[in-house]
Write a protein that binds this DNA or RNA. Structure first.
Lengths: 179, 179
DNA sequence: GTCTATAATAGGATAGAC
DNA sequence: GTCTATCCTATTATAGAC
């Protein structure tokens, strides 16, 4: 059920995801949703964030910090990313929730999610011997690249930008970029 | 007036931008807005797209195709981009409108806008001698990078990701990346 | 051209039956 | 736990005065 909610937020964002949408996706009435999530949409989005964090943490970010060459781990991670986003057909929950509701409670969680992505990738670049500042800059660039590629994929109804971005990612994370 | 509308869409996206928001930003009543834009929000967003296309076309993309070394033109373009997005404080209209309203009339225009960005940058990489496919891939990566950096900047309330992305952009567009 | 007033609808949320 | 029914508010849109 949470995955159904999650997918609505991924596809429509905070403002676009109405209770009717969420009700339809889950097969539950609006009132029934309030039984599971007393605070309404905010609780549903929080549950979706929980689900994504738990799932991606276990399947993608744990192996990323495992053993083997950094390049090989990153390549596996990219494969996982491609699968999770279905080659660009699905959006990113963090990105979708970053627009809208100005003052809401989810903001820190979204920010935190992005920070974790960046730190995990920065560690990888760091292992390869990059200077800390360069490692972080490369990691930021890779996360931005993937986020933007999902935006382009959605806007153009094509998976091509996403695939292009994933191919470029290793060069950006590990490539020799001075300053 | 159109720039006020534009900025609301940039900040809140299609779903988040209500007529009340647009009315407040312009200082006009909702009814007065309908006088200028008979079809409501859709017309306002279209006018915002017109404004952005005209403005960026003249100030950024025309000089990009001008004379001088590609690297220098690209550097000036990046300066213009930084100014237009106020170092990441403002969002991208295309990106903001890419989420929401499933079937609406603006979709082709958003797609077209992104396509023009990509083609302009691809020409630049092409001038530098990149193979056509590589030039296009690099251009896609740069547009995605900038888009994603704006998402990160908004999510983290920091201009740092945006500035990092702009520094990385020349290496991605012109750097030696083999396939 | 802009306003006030108003309609019609959708969204968010709650009450209470089962 | 899930439903129907309901409420309140916000949103989109229109009518008509000035």
């Amino acid at each position: 059920m949470v995955t159904a909610l999650r997918d609505v937020f991924r596809a429509k964002g905070w403002d676009g995801a109405s209770l009717s949408d969420l009700s339809r996706a889950t097969g539950l009435s609006r009132a029934a949703l309030y039984h599971h999530f007393p605070n309404g949409k905010a609780d549903m989005a929080a549950a979706a964030l929980d689900d994504v964090e738990r799932r991606l943490g276990a399947e993608l970010f744990a192996p990323l910090a495992g053993e083997g060459a950094p390049e090989a781990r990153f390549a596996r991670w990219l494969d996982g990313i491609a699968a999770y986003y279905r080659n660009g057909d699905l959006g990113c929950l963090l990105g979708a929730l970053s627009l809208g509701q100005d003052e809401h409670k989810l903001r820190p969680r979204v920010e935190d999610g992005f920070t974790r992505w960046i730190e995990a990738l920065a560690r990888l670049a760091d292992e390869r011997g990059a200077a800390p500042a360069d490692a972080r800059a490369s990691a930021v660039a890779v996360v931005a690249l993937i986020q933007g590629a999902l935006t382009l994929a959605r806007a153009t109804s094509s998976s091509a930008p996403f695939e292009t971005a994933l191919r470029a990612a290793p060069h950006i994370l590990f490539g020799n970029r001075s300053a």
